[in-house]
Measured scan of single mutants.
Amino acid sequence: HMTFVALYDYVASGETDLSFKKGERLQIVNNTEGDWWLAHSLTTGRTGYISSNYVAPSD
């Protein structure tokens, strides 16, 4: 899985979204569905959809 880092804080707007904080590391589970990616937070252990605009590759 690809690992990304959050560029900004994000508060989930629905049950399927994932809230995260700036600097949080996220593993991308599925990024084939446009701008919203299914991600797993390595910080909180939660999984949900994130906006690809809010993250950048961590490598």
Rank of each mutant, 00 (worst) to 15 (best):
W37P: 01
Q27N: 07
T3L: 14
V5H: 04
D35C: 13
N53Y: 14
E24D: 12
V29I: 15
D9W: 08
I28N: 05
D17A: 10
W36K: 14
E15S: 11
N30Y: 10
V5I: 14
S52M: 13
N31A: 13
N31K: 14
T44I: 06
Y8H: 08
I50P: 00
T47Y: 10
A39Y: 04
E24S: 01
K21I: 08
S58A: 14
L38M: 07
I50V: 13
T3V: 15
L18T: 02
L18D: 01
V11K: 08
D9L: 06
F20N: 00
T43G: 05
N30C: 13
G23A: 03
S52A: 13
D35K: 10
V5Y: 08
G23L: 02
T43F: 06
Y8E: 09
L26Q: 00
G45R: 05
W37I: 07
Y10E: 04
S19W: 03
E15N: 10
G23M: 02
T44Y: 02
R25P: 07
P57A: 10
H1M: 13
A12N: 03
G34D: 09
D9P: 03
G23P: 01
D17E: 15
G14S: 14
T3H: 10
W36D: 04
K21Y: 07
A56N: 06
V5Q: 04
R25T: 13
Y8S: 07
T16P: 05
D17I: 09
S41W: 01
E24I: 05
Y10M: 05
T16I: 08
D17H: 14
V55R: 02
L7G: 02
M2L: 12
S58Q: 12
Y54T: 06
M2H: 10
V29D: 05
N53Q: 14
I50K: 00
H1T: 12
E24M: 01
L7S: 02
I50M: 03
D35S: 11
N30A: 11
S51E: 06
L18W: 03
G14K: 15
W36H: 09
N53C: 15
D35Q: 11
Q27S: 08
V11E: 13
G14D: 09
T44L: 02
T44K: 01
G34M: 07
S51C: 15
G34Y: 07
Y10N: 05
L38D: 10
G48P: 00
Q27D: 06
T47L: 08
G45A: 03
M2S: 09
Y54S: 13
E33C: 14
G14P: 02
I50S: 00
R46N: 07
Y49D: 01
Y8L: 09
L7Y: 03
T16W: 15
Y8I: 13
Y10G: 02
R46E: 07
Y8C: 15
N53W: 15
S52V: 09
T3E: 12
G34T: 09
G34F: 06
G48E: 01
G23S: 02
E15V: 10
Y54F: 12
T32E: 09
N30R: 09
W37T: 02
T16F: 15
S41K: 01
I50D: 00
Y10L: 04
S52Q: 08
K21N: 08
G48V: 02
T32V: 10
D35P: 09
Y49F: 11
F4C: 07
L38I: 06
D59T: 12
T3I: 15
A6R: 00
L38A: 01
F4W: 14
Y10R: 05
P57W: 11
R46M: 11
E33W: 08
H1E: 11
F20D: 00
Y8D: 07
Y49N: 03
D17W: 14
S41P: 00
S58R: 06
T43D: 15
E24A: 04
Y49V: 04
S19Q: 05
F4L: 06
K22R: 09
I28V: 11
E33Q: 13
V11I: 13
V29P: 04
Y54I: 06
D59F: 13
D59W: 14
T3Y: 14
S51D: 13
T32L: 11
Y49T: 03
D59I: 13
S51Q: 15
T43W: 07
T3K: 04
T3G: 05
L7T: 05
L18K: 00
K21G: 05
A39K: 00
N53E: 13
A39S: 02
V11S: 08
W37V: 07
T32R: 10
I28P: 11
V55G: 04
D35F: 10
L38Q: 04
L42T: 06
W36E: 05
E24L: 02
H40D: 01
L18M: 12
T3R: 05
I50L: 07
Y10I: 06
H40W: 08
A56P: 04
W36V: 12
T32W: 08
K21W: 05
A39P: 00
T16M: 13
H1C: 15
E15P: 14
H40V: 15
A6P: 00
D9T: 07
L18P: 04
V11R: 07
T32A: 10
A39H: 00
E15R: 08
E33R: 12
D59K: 09
T32S: 12
V55C: 06
T32M: 12
L18E: 01
E24K: 01
H40N: 07
T47C: 12
Y10W: 06
D9H: 04
Y8R: 09
A56E: 10
A6I: 02
A6T: 12
T44C: 03
G23R: 01
F4I: 04
S19P: 04
K21T: 09
R25C: 14
S52L: 10
V29W: 13
V29S: 06
M2P: 11
L18S: 01
T47P: 01
T43C: 11
V29R: 06
N53A: 15
Y54A: 15
L38R: 03
K22E: 05
L26P: 00
T32I: 10
T16A: 12
W36I: 13
N53R: 14
D9V: 04
S52R: 14
D9A: 04
L26S: 00
K21R: 11
L38S: 03
Q27M: 14
T16E: 12
L42C: 12
L7A: 03
G48Q: 02
D17S: 08
T16C: 15
W37S: 01
R25I: 15
V29C: 14
W37K: 03
W37C: 04
